[in-house]
Amino acid sequence: MNTRWKPNVTVAAVIERDGRYMLIEEHTPEGLRLNNPAGHLDPGESPEQGAAREALEETAHAFTPTALVGIYMSRFQREATGEDVTYLRFAYAGELGAEEPGRALDTGIVRTLWMTPDEIRASVDRHRSPLVLQCMEDHLAGQRRPMNTVITDATVFKR
């Protein structure tokens, strides 16, 4: 049987303020892990809309993407089950907006925290993915691509 391989498309917000990066701490099957505010792209949304939605759901802050940091692929193999998953991540830099008072964080999210680049580098064993560090390093290096690098055709938004 010939099965078509499909990566899991995810979106992430790379949020920096005053030399610190906002990460989330979340429960995963592998334990408590650190990640960028990130998650799966939903049907009917563009990658930048997905990044804004995920940031809001996981941090209770509005997020406006202003630049594409990069498009990344990574592979994850869960030891306990043998699950083999490839992720295709669109990571966006942007502006962090106001917090929505009283908004609950997504299920599994413990808290948000602000970390320096050195703290993030020192905590690599707690990262949910190698892309947490890679996105930060690319952001620090000034990697920014125009928002129109990724084009979302109008057909995506049709119901």
Score class of each variant (00 low, 15 high):
residue 1 M to S: 14
residue 1 M to D: 13
residue 4 R to Y: 05
residue 5 W to Q: 00
residue 6 K to P: 02
residue 6 K to H: 10
residue 7 P to Y: 03
residue 8 N to W: 02
residue 12 A to V: 04
residue 12 A to Q: 04
residue 14 V to R: 00
residue 14 V to E: 01
residue 15 I to S: 00
residue 17 R to K: 08
residue 17 R to F: 01
residue 17 R to I: 01
residue 19 G to W: 02
residue 19 G to I: 01
residue 20 R to V: 06
residue 20 R to C: 00
residue 22 M to L: 15
residue 23 L to R: 01
residue 23 L to G: 02
residue 24 I to S: 03
residue 26 E to I: 04
residue 28 T to G: 07
residue 29 P to T: 10
residue 29 P to G: 12
residue 30 E to I: 03
residue 31 G to H: 15
residue 34 L to F: 10
residue 35 N to Q: 07
residue 37 P to R: 01
residue 40 H to T: 11
residue 40 H to K: 12
residue 41 L to F: 04
residue 45 E to C: 07
residue 45 E to S: 04
residue 47 P to H: 02
residue 48 E to W: 13
residue 50 G to W: 03
residue 53 R to L: 05
residue 53 R to Q: 08
residue 53 R to D: 07
residue 55 A to F: 13
residue 57 E to T: 08
residue 58 E to S: 14
residue 61 H to M: 09
residue 62 A to M: 11
residue 64 T to N: 12
residue 66 T to I: 10
residue 73 M to V: 11
residue 76 F to D: 14
residue 82 G to P: 12
residue 83 E to N: 08
residue 85 V to H: 08
residue 87 Y to S: 06
residue 88 L to R: 12
residue 89 R to D: 15
residue 90 F to Y: 14
residue 92 Y to N: 03
residue 92 Y to Q: 06
residue 99 E to R: 15
residue 100 E to D: 08
residue 102 G to D: 15
residue 103 R to S: 10
residue 103 R to C: 07
residue 104 A to G: 07
residue 108 G to F: 13
residue 108 G to R: 10
residue 109 I to H: 06
residue 110 V to A: 08
residue 111 R to N: 09
residue 115 M to T: 10
residue 116 T to N: 01
residue 116 T to A: 00
residue 117 P to D: 01
residue 120 I to M: 05
residue 121 R to L: 12
residue 121 R to W: 02
residue 122 A to P: 11
residue 127 H to N: 10
residue 127 H to Y: 12
residue 128 R to W: 06
residue 130 P to D: 11
residue 132 V to L: 15
residue 132 V to G: 04
residue 133 L to C: 06
residue 134 Q to F: 06
residue 135 C to A: 11
residue 137 E to N: 07
residue 137 E to Q: 03
residue 138 D to A: 02
residue 138 D to I: 03
residue 139 H to A: 11
residue 142 G to D: 04
residue 142 G to T: 07
residue 143 Q to T: 13
residue 144 R to T: 10
residue 145 R to K: 07
residue 146 P to I: 13
residue 147 M to L: 14
residue 149 T to H: 05
residue 153 D to T: 10
residue 155 T to K: 07
